Computed example of a mutant assay.
Amino acid sequence: MHDFFESVEYNDFSQWFNEKSGPEDIRELHEGFNAVNQKIKDINKDKEVQYLYLQKILELIDTGIVAYSINTGDIIWINESFKELLKTPTFKNIQFIKKRSENIFKTVFEAQHINGSTISIETEKNKTKLLISTAHFQMNNEEFKLIVLQNIENTLNQNQSEAWNKLLHIMTHEIMNSIAPISSLAETLQAEIKLNIEDSEKYPLDTNDLYLSINSIQKRSEGLMSFSKSYRGLNKITTINANKIYVRELFDGINNLLKPSLKSKGIDLQFIIDNQNLQINMDAALIEQVLINLIMNSVDACIETNQPKIMVSAKTSNEGYAIIKVTDNGKGIPDEIVDKIFIPFFSSKKKGSGIGLSLCQQIMFLHNGKIQVNSIENSGTVIRLVF
């Protein structure tokens, strides 16, 4: 009995108790001891195999993973990909990174991140864009933190290249659509004027036709200018001037601006805030632009709806994020295009530029936030701005 309990105390289950000699009850007791030892050895072996299996998988993937104690900073597990992304040798405590690079330490280990957000770090004079996710967990009354990093530089470059190709294709198509009729009409006018100069009696100018042709050229030129301005508007916003803003003040300004025109259209516009003291760190002018854009989209969606209603609300989520929602009871967004609405220049409207929602998304990215869409065709749409 003493030997068995001692083996348990020191986690040594290699001892074998004699089952073939001695009194019968002792042999039965030894059989029980041996069965327990073998079972624990099998459990430990399975756990070890599972741990090695998991460890090999995590070592092979190109996603960087580190887990460390929040209290001491000691590393409990780290894979090669994490060290490769940070361009660092093996280290046992996160303070090593702090001594090596204060900026990387603050960005990766200290800053608060929304899971799935992007960060930029500079290693060996090269900037790298990474996707970061974090999680906290507890073991034996000690708190740990898990950080996962994924290099998205190549993915971004590929997506950017594809986006540019699509953008150039769309721009070329739109510009050619404008230039071709302008060029053709100009050539026709030039030929008619030349004939008139050579023989005005035989080829008299019809001033009415001349006016209509010039007017057509002007309209197409204005259309081309409008397209160019829309494109420029998509690219000009690169920084924000963020301050703590009371959401109620933001809502009041938009309400005063839009409610009269929406009331004349028979659309009920409402603003609701759970907490009147709710503040969000934002660029008020840009977020106002986003909300006006979303509300006007809702207006278009509600045109043919009985008792059209648009509700703009704000609250704080259980996770601590500030959320502004724009909800309407309009026609909704068809399933086949809901994934395309943020693509630049994509529009389901006949006169839409396809710039508005792309601009909204870019502004939310600059706020380190995101924009989410939930829509049911013929029932309505909910768009969430998550800060």
Rank of each mutant, 00 (worst) to 15 (best):
D42E: 11
Q158A: 15
D62L: 00
F144Q: 12
R100V: 12
S228F: 10
F137Q: 03
N141V: 06
E9K: 15
F345D: 11
A242R: 02
V290R: 02
K350A: 09
V8L: 15
N93I: 06
N235A: 11
I273Q: 04
G356E: 00
Q55F: 08
V386Q: 04
P308E: 00
L250Y: 05
A242S: 06
N378P: 09
T123M: 01
F144G: 15
L385I: 07
M1Y: 12
T118W: 14
E28M: 00
F91Y: 04
K41R: 08
F251K: 01
N256V: 03
E31M: 01
S184I: 08
E28L: 09
N44H: 05
L29R: 07
I94G: 05
P204E: 01
H30V: 12
D268M: 07
T327D: 15
V8N: 13
E80K: 15
L366F: 01
F96N: 04
L29K: 05
I75Y: 01
E31Q: 15
D74R: 04
K166W: 15
I114W: 10
K20V: 11
N208T: 14
T128S: 07
C360P: 08
C360S: 03
T238P: 13
T134M: 10
E201Y: 10
Q289L: 15
A186Y: 10
L291P: 03
E249A: 02
N34H: 13
V290M: 10
K315Q: 13
Q372I: 03
N93K: 01
K92M: 02
V386T: 01
K56W: 05
D339P: 04
P204Q: 03
I78M: 02
P344I: 05
L366C: 09
H173V: 07
N37L: 03
K340M: 10
T305V: 08
L212D: 03
I333D: 12
V247P: 12
I57L: 08
E304S: 13
L359Y: 08
E319S: 15
N18S: 07
K229Q: 11
Q138H: 15
E162P: 02
G266Y: 00
K265N: 12
S133Y: 04
E288T: 07
Q362M: 08
P89F: 09
I197V: 13
I323V: 14
N374S: 14
E24Y: 05
N18W: 12
K45C: 14
L146C: 08
S81V: 14
L278Q: 03
K349V: 11
F5P: 06
E153I: 13
S120G: 13
E249W: 07
I272H: 12
N37F: 10
Q279Y: 10
S317R: 05
I280T: 07
P334N: 06
F342D: 05
E122C: 06
N18K: 11
Q362G: 09
S261F: 06
G32E: 05
T172S: 12
D3K: 14
M296E: 12
C302E: 08
L224C: 01
E162W: 01
N374W: 14
A35E: 14
I237A: 02
N11A: 10
I132L: 02
K202T: 11
I254A: 01
N151K: 00
E31G: 11
